[in-house]
């Protein structure tokens, strides 16, 4: 077992390469998940803010304005 982990004394190089590869891919997956979640909640909130106005005016809703005048 130790033999496998030491990789003939080149553990730093071998595991450094494989570790960085799968570490970065894992980070990418986690980042994609969290950005999906934040996007869903952000757009959800945006639509809820917009919904009553859209029903009353029927006009194209303004996009991206964070502070709607009530």
């Amino acid at each position: 077992m130790m033999e496998f982990f030491s990789q003939g004394g080149y553990a730093g190089y071998v595991w450094g390469a494989f570790g960085m590869t799968f570490g970065l891919l894992l980070i990418e997956v986690l980042q994609l998940r969290s950005s999906r979640k934040t996007t869903l909640t952000r757009i959800g909130r945006l639509l809820r803010l917009r919904a009553p106005r859209q029903a009353s005016t029927g006009a194209d809703p303004q996009r991206g304005t964070s502070g709607p005048t009530s």
Partner: peptide, 20 residues
């Protein structure tokens, strides 16, 4: 990974559309 990112981009850009 690309499809997952693409879906987020689609939602963000198309957020004005009814289907979103």
């Amino acid at each position: 990974a690309v499809f997952a990112r693409l879906r987020t981009i689609i939602l963000t850009r198309e957020s004005d559309n009814a289907w979103v």
